[in-house]
Design a protein around this nucleic acid. Structure first.
Lengths: 153, 153
DNA sequence: AGAAATAGTGGGTGCTGGCCCACTATAGGT
DNA sequence: ACCTATAGTGGGCCAGCACCCACTATTTCT
C-alpha cells in the first residue's frame, strides 16, 4: 500500500534531475543484462568500437573510449579470454598490441545490441515513435555540447 | 592535438547511451558544486523535500526519497549540524523525530537551486528555449514510466 | 651506444553509493 | 506486565569506477 510518495517538485522541475535519474536507470538495467553474461559496460563499449572502426591498438581504444590504458588492458584481456577478440603484436612495432574483433565477438555484440535496444524500448515505452525520434535528436545536441564548460578537456 | 576521438556510432545511436552520458555529466557537475559547500546530492534532495512538503518524520523522508532510513539519519544529522534543519522529538510519539527546515535551510536551498539551474543552463546550452521545454516534457514522460518493467517495486 | 619516450601490464588505492545488521528507545496490543 | 512492532541510529560491508604507480619490452632520438 505504500504510495509511490511523490518526489519533491523542486527536483522534478529540473530537467537535469530527470536526465540524471532516467540515465542512471537505463545504465543500471543494461549493466544488469550484461552482468548475466559476465560482461560489463566497458566490454560492450570496446566491442562496439572494434566493430565500428576496425582493429585498434590498445592506446587507440583508451583514447577513443576515454578510459585508462591500464583498464583497457584488463578489459581486452577478458574479451580475449572469452574469444571475442584476438590480440596480436604489431610486427612493425612490437610494443603495440593490435586488437581485432572475432566472429564470435561480432555475434555477441549483435546480441548485446539487441539487449540494449530492448532496454531502450522499455525505458522509452511512454513515448510514441515520433517522440522517441525527437528525444534522440535533442539528446544528440546536448551530448554534442557536453565537452564545453566545466569540462575543458 | 588529440582529436576528440569519435565514439562508436553503435553507441551514439542508442538514446539510452546519450541519456546515460548526459545524465551522468549533469549529476557530476551539480555534485561538484555542492561539494564546494560540503554538501552532497542527498542533502539537497532532503532540503527540497522539506521545502516542498513541510516537516517530515525521518521515515517519511526515507520513503519519499527512496533512501535507506539509516542514511537519512546521517544526512539529517549533517543538515542539523549546519543549522539547515531542526530536529525535535514528536511529543505524541517520542520515537519519532520531526525534521523542519530552518530559515537558513530555506535560504541555502534557494542558492542550491540557483546553482542547479546554472548547471542545467550549461548542459542544455545547445538547445533553444522551445527545445528545452520539449525535452523536459519528454523526460517527464519517460521518468513517469520508470517504475514498471525490470523494476517491479 | 646510451638516453629518453612509448605501449602494455599488474597491482593497487580511494571515493561513492546503496545496503544491511545490530542495538536502543519507545509505543501498542493483549 | 509481557510481547511485538516501529523509529532512529551507528557501524560496517560490498560493488563499481576511476585513477595512478611501478615495471618491462621496445622503439626512437641524438
Amino acid at each position: 500500500m505504500d504510495l509511490p510518495a511523490a518526489r519533491p517538485p523542486s527536483l522534478l522541475g529540473l530537467s537535469t534531475y530527470l536526465l540524471s535519474q532516467t540515465g542512471k536507470t537505463a545504465r543500471a538495467r543494461l549493466a544488469q543484462r550484461l552482468a548475466d553474461r559476465g560482461l560489463k559496460l566497458w566490454h560492450m563499449a570496446t566491442l562496439a568500437a572494434l566493430a565500428d572502426f576496425g582493429p585498434h591498438v590498445q592506446r587507440e581504444l583508451a583514447a577513443r573510449l576515454a578510459m585508462d590504458p591500464s583498464d583497457v588492458a584488463k578489459v581486452v584481456d577478458e574479451l580475449a579470454a572469452a574469444g571475442y577478440v584476438d590480440r596480436s603484436r604489431d610486427p612493425g612495432d612490437r610494443r603495440r598490441v593490435a586488437v581485432t574483433l572475432t566472429g564470435a565477438g561480432r555475434a555477441t555484440l549483435a546480441e548485446l545490441d539487441t539487449e540494449a535496444r530492448q532496454v531502450q524500448d522499455d525505458i522509452l515505452a511512454p513515448l510514441s515513435l515520433a517522440e522517441r525520434a525527437q528525444i534522440h535528436v535533442l539528446l544528440e545536441k546536448v551530448y554534442g555540447g557536453l565537452r564545453r564548460t566545466s569540462d575543458p578537456a
